[in-house]
Design a protein around this nucleic acid. Structure first.
Lengths: 222, 222
DNA sequence: GACAAACACGAGTTTTTACTTGTATTTCTA
DNA sequence: TAGAAATACAAGTAAAAACTCGTGTTTGTC
């Protein structure tokens, strides 16, 4: 009945064309956002007709799938190469400093990656509103911190609150995706982590000692 | 020229109808995801005609806006009421335990909230692929941790890696939204936080001491 | 060099979906 | 109690965007 799955023997030209399509999709998403990424726009950006595009990808979903595969495989390879035994032997602070910097740089250089993998479903307007809500709650939490630890500056309290909320928010999707007992583990770890983060920070005995558990202004250099 | 902005004097019936529309939108999003939320589907779910729907919301964006406003105001009120001076006087571990539990419960009870505010742009299929990538990288990081701290169990290393990656990922949007010098602060805090989290955890001198900075299996009860 | 298969095109078609329109009914107000 | 405004409906419109089709060109293989 239906012509199912005739495997096409791609020519070198065709493989190159597929990469161009993914490049175009990445550009469009990076510039205009995922919602604006239409197949026609991608075809135009890649300098080809819609018909040509559909000779390489059966539908829009496959383009996205291809783009995501390219991203994930690229990142997988990158980290596999980056995280060798060498990094197990360097000082932890230095290691964290380097890796975080690299991640920040990557985020800056590949906007489509974040738009696709971590972008909001609703567009910029509504995402901004959500951001404002979180900022408000963080401010409220910061007030509580300030009450608990009057010796801390307001700014410091706000940073602590912002980071704490971010932690909670970050763990939620993991909890949702994990099987129940693993989820319980993650929640317990989250609590423990928050406590480990906040307890020394709010404790005024640590106000000026700068213990190892809270090395502010340490070797990190942004 | 164009009939601009005639303010409608809503009747009690109309205000109720608007809430019903938002309820319907929330249900549709919670069950089928944001991408499947069409105005017709919302109208049908609310038991009204498309025409009726458009007497209360001028377009789809306004429905979303309304839903988000309802969410954010509800949450704002909730947290303003919840985070009173009282919480500033209870033990930190207990406080964290309670608040995290409440957040987890809320997430479970209002799926649309998370789908809207933190949902991915690409639908479940692709979001799952991204989750798999992160799990892979976490496994790789866990290997490194295991090399650095051979006394730790594999599971423990994986948890540490997973949480560390989640933290990094969570801070990225904040960095993107913040002005440059605030962004630098957040990045520095992220590094410091990671160090504070990982240094004691990987240090074998802390293997069985269970210091205050790393109270695993502490008072948290999930 | 001939044949098939891959590549390329772009003007269409089809489907989906946000939104309108014309009319009928209910509620508020004077 | 009349008139106006708000509410309600369902069939229908219009535009956008995913995708097709018929045809022509290039590339690889024998």
């Amino acid at each position: 009945m239906t012509e199912t799955h005739r495997p096409v023997r791609r020519q070198a030209r065709g493989l190159k064309r597929m990469e161009e399509i993914l490049d175009a999709a990445e550009e469009v998403i990076g510039e205009a956002g995922y919602a604006e990424m239409t197949t026609n726009a991608v075809a135009a950006r890649a300098g080809m007709s819609p018909g040509s595009l559909y000779q390489f990808f059966r539908n829009k979903e496959e383009i996205l799938q291809g783009l995501l595969t390219r991203f994930t495989e690229g990142r997988r390879e990158h980290w596999n190469a980056r995280l060798t035994g060498d990094v197990a032997r360097m000082p932890l602070d230095e290691l964290i400093d380097q890796l975080v910097n690299e991640i920040v740089d990557f985020k800056g250089s590949r906007p489509a990656y974040w738009a696709l993998l971590h972008g909001s479903a609703t567009g910029d307007r509504l995402a901004a509103a959500s951001g404002r809500l979180h900022a408000d709650i963080a401010a409220r939490v910061a007030q509580i911190f300030s009450l608990r630890a009057p010796h801390l500056e307001q700014d410091r309290c706000l940073t602590l609150a912002t980071m704490s909320l971010a932690m909670v928010k970050a763990v939620m999707p993991l909890v949702a995706a994990a099987p129940p007992e693993r989820a319980a583990d993650l929640i317990a770890e989250l609590k423990s982590m928050l406590l480990g983060y906040l307890l020394p920070a709010l404790d005024d005995r640590n106000a000026r000692t700068g213990g190892a558990a809270q090395p502010r202004n340490g070797p990190v250099t942004s």
